[in-house]
Amino acid sequence: MSEAAEIKIEQAERKEARANTILYVDGVSVTFDGFRALNSLSFYVEPGELRAIIGPNGAGKTTMMDIITGKTRPDTGDVLFRSDVDLTKLDEAEIANLGIGRKFQKPTVFESHTVFDNLLLACSGGRGVFQALFHRLGNAEKLRIEQTLETIMLVDKRDETAANLSHGQKQWLEIGMLLMQEPELLLVDEPVAGMTDSETEQTAKLLRSIAIDRSVVVVEHDMEFVRDLDCKVTVLHEGSVLAEGRLDHVQKDPRVIEVYLGR
């Protein structure tokens, strides 16, 4: 077979792999001061999929999130959204407006605002300065906010300042804010860190219900929680994918055991 033909076939294969993905990460590497945070990381997420990403500390989970959401630029590699939008060329706000929502590891909400205002600010719609200046609260928006308040179980905290919420409630509020953005893809970083068991269970339920009509990528340490999610799992190690599959499948993988339990 000629070389050109080979390249052609390879391109076609890559195109096929990209097609029908909501998120396509291919060969992404990034280096900080000589430290390789991501090493040729490749994986993809299908529309409507719920995906858990696990890995020990320093595996590159948060850096991966940073790259997808435009906070960090990769040294090499492709990051495509809806199989054709190149995310490496856009900034955070543009990526957010495309329909990718991100929840931080540490719950980050607008502490001086009420729960209602937090959701209002996240509400999809005009993001322009003057749109914001002359914005009037419409009934449709209000209805959506009320619905979300119900989804995230914070109806009675509606007019409370976000600073006064408990840790778990802040996590939910943040998820609620992501829902208000109406993203196609949700990236959720350690949503149950510091939560009680019952809160954890409720959060898992919440995420599963969200995942019904959108793609969700969850980064998590907590194995029980990942089991609760009941989805495909990707194991990261030293900046690249170590194993991928159902949780009980990857748990049997000797390399995963080695990474998690030490050698």
Binding site: D33, T62, D66, T72
Partner: peptide, 8 residues
């Protein structure tokens, strides 16, 4: 500058 996640 130090680069990376920690400093940001």
């Amino acid at each position: 500058a130090l680069k990376g996640r920690a400093v940001e």
